[in-house]
Simulated assay, not measured.
Amino acid sequence: MAPPASARPMRADTERTVRAILTAAERVLSANPAATMEQIAEAAGVARTTVHRRFASREALVRALAAWAAQQFHDAVTAARPDTAPPAVALYQATANVLRVKAGWGFAMGALPTDAPEVARVHADVLAQCERLFIRARDAGLLPSDADLDWARRVYYALIHEAAAQAPDTDAAVDALATRVVDTLLHGVGKPATA
């Protein structure tokens, strides 16, 4: 995954440096949200001046980190092929992929600026993909034909949020939580009412 696109393409070594800084920033800021640029530089294995050359301020670094996480979030959903994979498969895969992003990029996902155009664009596209997937799931009989798809999507998002709060740290934990989220969405948590 490449760092956020800028006005011109970065050289490969510059891209690696930016990626190392962003990865270190996520790790350091997750442990200590008040961490300094110097602490981030040390964790990235680069000079403080390198961090300052790439990011004019701590705020600029956090914005870049949030934009990068938003792009990873988008890529996680897109990789599930929500428009072409069987709906049940796409729903499970999107859930697992998003949980992996949320688990690995918790600070950045929480720092997403709502006023940043690139973040808004990414979220609008993810929303559109999710809406189409839920229509396909309803059409395939996974959701009732009269389901309120907006409500179902909101419940799904809430389930993912709660699952991510459990901080899954292994692939097996992510897979188990993804299965639980999808099962809860499609089948609920209680016994069906008897007629």
Rank of each mutant, 00 (worst) to 15 (best):
L177G: 00
V89M: 01
H123T: 04
P86Q: 05
R154S: 03
I160G: 10
S57F: 13
A64Y: 02
A137H: 07
V182K: 00
R138Y: 07
D148C: 00
Q71A: 12
A140L: 05
A140K: 15
V155H: 13
C130H: 09
D13C: 05
D169A: 06
V174D: 15
K102S: 09
A120V: 15
P168F: 00
Q166G: 03
S145N: 07
L159V: 05
R54Q: 14
R63W: 05
R11P: 00
A111M: 07
P82M: 06
A76M: 12
A79E: 12
F73K: 00
Y157Q: 10
A47K: 14
T194I: 12
E42Q: 13
T179D: 03
R54P: 01
A140P: 13
P113Q: 01
A76Y: 11
V122C: 15
I21K: 02
A5C: 03
V189N: 13
L99W: 01
E118V: 15
D146V: 13
M10W: 02
A60E: 12
R136L: 14
N97Q: 08
L22D: 09
R154Q: 04
G141F: 01
D148E: 10
I21D: 00
G106N: 13
S30N: 09
A20I: 09
A66F: 11
R54H: 15
M10L: 15
V46I: 07
F107T: 04
F73D: 02
I21Q: 07
R180I: 00
S57H: 13
L99T: 00
A111N: 09
H74C: 09
R81E: 13
A96Y: 03
L112A: 12
L61V: 15
A69R: 01
V28R: 03
D148V: 03
R63E: 14
A90C: 06
A69N: 05
Y92S: 11
G45E: 04
A41F: 02
A164M: 09
A96W: 05
V189A: 12
D146T: 15
R153K: 10
E15R: 14
R136C: 06
G110A: 07
E162L: 12
L112Y: 08
A103S: 14
V98D: 02
A41T: 05
P117H: 06
A108S: 11
V18T: 13
D83W: 03
A108Q: 06
R16A: 11
A66Q: 08
G141T: 08
A34Y: 08
P113S: 07
A2E: 04
